[in-house]
Simulated scan of single mutants.
Amino acid sequence: MAGFKNDAKIAINVLLIACLLVMSQPRVVSALTCDELVPYLWPCMTYVEGTGPLTDSCCKGVKDLNDKTKNSQDRRAVCNCLKKAASCNSVAKSKIVSGIPSKCGINIPYTISSSTDCSKVK
């Protein structure tokens, strides 16, 4: 039974990462692509899944990603990736994800949600 639970967790992780990887925006020319977000956000996975605490490494990844978005175009690209990833998750997980920046003390210029209008991100 424990093996089944671990297999299910692995499958969920793979699905979440796959959602991030296949969501590139070919019409948006940016230094950042959806697949480049994975290393920054991977430390947050156990927290999002409810299997671990919000860690310093998760907050560092979110901060580093936020710092890397130097212009509106980058911020919109990241917003679009996160928006699409949020649409792949349950409502409960989406609420957990959207709360991470504020819990880490990081101010991002949009809400992580499947309904965010990323075109308005400055």
Rank of each mutant, 00 (worst) to 15 (best):
M1C: 15
M1P: 13
M1H: 15
M1D: 15
A2T: 11
A2S: 10
G3I: 13
K5N: 02
K5F: 05
N6I: 15
A8V: 11
A8G: 04
K9N: 08
K9C: 08
I10V: 13
I10N: 07
I10Y: 06
I10L: 09
A11Q: 10
A11P: 10
I12T: 01
I12R: 02
N13H: 04
V14W: 03
L15G: 09
L16E: 01
I17P: 00
A18L: 11
C19W: 01
L20C: 15
S24F: 09
S24V: 10
S24P: 08
Q25I: 06
Q25K: 07
P26S: 04
R27T: 13
R27H: 13
V29I: 10
S30M: 09
S30P: 08
A31Y: 10
A31N: 14
A31C: 13
L32S: 01
L32G: 01
T33P: 05
T33N: 15
T33W: 04
C34A: 08
C34Y: 02
C34K: 00
C34G: 06
D35A: 15
D35W: 05
E36Y: 02
L37I: 14
L37E: 03
L37K: 03
L37N: 04
V38M: 06
V38C: 05
P39A: 11
Y40P: 12
Y40H: 15
Y40D: 11
L41E: 00
L41P: 03
W42T: 10
W42P: 04
P43K: 01
C44H: 00
M45H: 01
T46P: 04
T46Q: 04
Y47G: 01
E49S: 09
E49Q: 15
E49N: 13
G50V: 03
G50E: 00
G52Y: 12
P53Q: 11
P53S: 14
T55K: 05
T55L: 06
T55I: 14
D56Y: 12
D56T: 12
D56G: 11
S57C: 06
C58A: 07
C59F: 06
K60A: 12
K60S: 11
G61Q: 02
G61Y: 00
G61V: 10
